[in-house]
Write a protein that binds this DNA or RNA. Structure first.
Lengths: 350, 350
DNA sequence: GATTAGCACTCAGGTTGTATGAGTGCTAAA
DNA sequence: TTTAGCACTCATACAACCTGAGTGCTAATC
């Protein structure tokens, strides 16, 4: 059967109406929406065709039609018009970017929050995780005679620090010695390459009776681990309950629980090649997401890392609007963090 | 009217049954619970008395009784038996403490999560906020010719850092100069004392044409602000929906929204003098919490700061169990962070 | 005087039956 | 090919009814 232009118009009208109302839409309503060129009976015939093509379905005999997953897919791929962001919307997003994204450390979390506020859907944010991170340099700063600060910087330009106190005193010279030893022995190594063996050797070479080296190195290990570990942040969960499809607790609870237990990042889809991805209903791998849609976008955090932000909602979510906002935000984030241009307020360099 | 020993026993039985079941409890059930020494009719008489004393109430004529706010208050103050934590429970808490609390930075968030997991209620966590924080020292570390790291340490021993890139190159000597200038001019000052005036003077004195000083100082300001600003973290919101009183969306939604929009810490109660506080129903100030109970505990983060963790649940929450777990956890956290014993692995100092 | 058995009464919640209306599919006419 | 008309299907809302748990009161009992 042919997907005529009229069928496409009707399908689109049905989907957009359903996106708005969450109610099955009938032939009469569509006849009106299209502009009364044809009668509702004609629409009915067309709808029957669309249904047999698998693009629509009926919740029951005498209800209107609702889009099927295939229908949404067609809509997203071909029918959907690009949503133009209003000046207000872009301004709001820009403001969010300016205000919230000060600390790189908390980008993930913040990005999720912003997305959720922007879309009124629950959102999640995760980092795509780094592999093969290494420490680029160590710095030890003497604070008091029995306290110093470790500063480590990774090859991906992330800096972490910790204050260490000792049971006994330490001289500046000792610290210097330790510092150079660390920088010669433990830089450029991945997590796996830092073996207990290596530490023992270094400890011996330095004549380190205090176990200082292991203290500092274990901090470095912690940093490397935390960077390799991906974490997920979810936010705006309460938005879910505003949607008619989740007025029933039986529907809402499993999804809410799934999103709340944000332990395992593997459960959230990440876009591989494209900057943006739309997963409709059963296209999701996770069971709990089987009748929700997920829109994910990725952005460049710089230094080879990518961040991922996503929105979870009912299959009838307003794809046009969501994708527009999400991609605009992702671009903004890329601009902010990517290309080595960190959000420190610094300008472009070299 | 006298609150006889028998009345107290009955009241307690009613409250504990209601805490378990969330169903109004009838005379017969109580007669059984007490041990059938008396008949249900007697219980009925006693219950009528308790009701006229304002300790019980009826949802409607032919239902059982439920505790009133006053009833809960009496229970919490006098009737409640201390809940003994099982070995498993303490072990679980200790493990959570050991595993999760590695980074002081994320204590708040983590503490909230742990509480929520421990109690199966939504939890919130906030810091009591610091006042009059000052920078104790600056360190500038040269990374490349056009990049350096700022490390600032506050008088409360919190260390923060940031990587700064410059449009042009810089010599080690320049950085040294800047470093000493910062340490002589901008240490020991509170947020208010760092005026634009002062910055201009310093900039002039240093002949700082790059605006480097303002770059570094604005980072310092950011750090001070972030420490003074209190933030709230909520977690485990989905637990709310497991409770029968929030099976109805109309009840759950306002509360969920209230807890989700965790912007304003002022909306959450913090215990003033006592280490633990129980707020039952309308004893809460916030409207959205008027028919929930909140249990909060505070713990010592060290250096004069206190953290606050709390649990939100229905008025019929299991006060005995919750308070036991919460206070154990709070003590653990105090031990971990308080008394200058930071989780860095360092020991007591001076 | 305190306790108990018995009984009438109340009321939430579940079940059943019925009406309503939105929407459909099919057929015959335009 | 389109349209009007009609019979048919269901979800939903609503009223009527039943049931069972629980109460308050009264009169008998300890």
């Amino acid at each position: 059967m042919d997907l005529t232009e009229r069928k496409r118009r009707i399908l689109r009208a049905i989907i957009e109406s359903y996106i708005q109302s969450a109610e099955p839409v009938g032939s009469k309503a569509i006849a009106q929406a299209i502009g009364m060129e044809v009668s509702s009976a004609t629409i009915r015939n067309e709808m029957a065709d669309l249904e047999s093509m698998g693009l629509l379905e009926k919740p029951h005999t005498s209800a209107g039609r609702i889009p099927s997953v295939q229908g949404y897919r067609l809509y997203v791929n071909e029918l959907m018009e690009e949503h133009k962001l209003s000046l207000q919307e872009t301004e709001r997003i820009n403001q969010a970017l300016r205000l919230k994204m000060q600390e790189l450390d908390r980008v993930l979390d913040q990005a999720g929050r912003v997305v959720s506020q922007l879309t009124n859907y629950p959102a999640f944010a995760l980092s795509s995780g780094m592999e093969r991170v290494t420490i680029r340099r160590f710095d030890l700063l003497m604070v008091e005679r029995n306290a110093f600060i470790i500063v480590v910087m990774t090859d991906s330009n992330i800096v972490r620090n910790r204050l260490i106190r000792l049971p006994s005193d330490l001289t500046e010279a000792q610290l210097q010695l330790l510092n150079t030893l660390l920088n010669t022995t433990f830089t450029g190594l991945t997590l796996e390459e830092i073996t207990p063996e290596l530490m023992r050797v270094a400890q011996h070479a330095a004549g380190d009776s205090y176990g200082l080296i292991s203290l500092v190195v274990s901090f470095a290990i912690e940093v490397l681990e935390s960077l390799e570990r991906r974490t997920v942040h979810t936010s705006g969960l309460a938005h879910l309950l505003e949607l008619p499809e989740y007025r029933s607790l039986d529907r809402a609870q499993p999804l809410l629980s799934y999103l709340s237990e944000d332990t395992d990042p593997a459960r959230f889809p990440i876009p591989k090649d494209d900057p943006m991805k739309i997963l409709i209903g059963p296209e999701n791998v996770a069971d709990a997401l089987k009748d929700t849609s997920v829109v994910v976008a990725s952005y460049d955090i710089g230094d080879g890392m990518r961040g991922v932000i996503g929105v979870v909602g009912p299959t009838r979510m307003d794809y046009a609007k969501i994708t527009a906002r999400l991609s605009y935000l992702a671009e903004g984030l890329s601009r902010l963090f990517g290309r080595g241009e960190l959000p420190d307020g610094r300008d472009d360099h070299k």
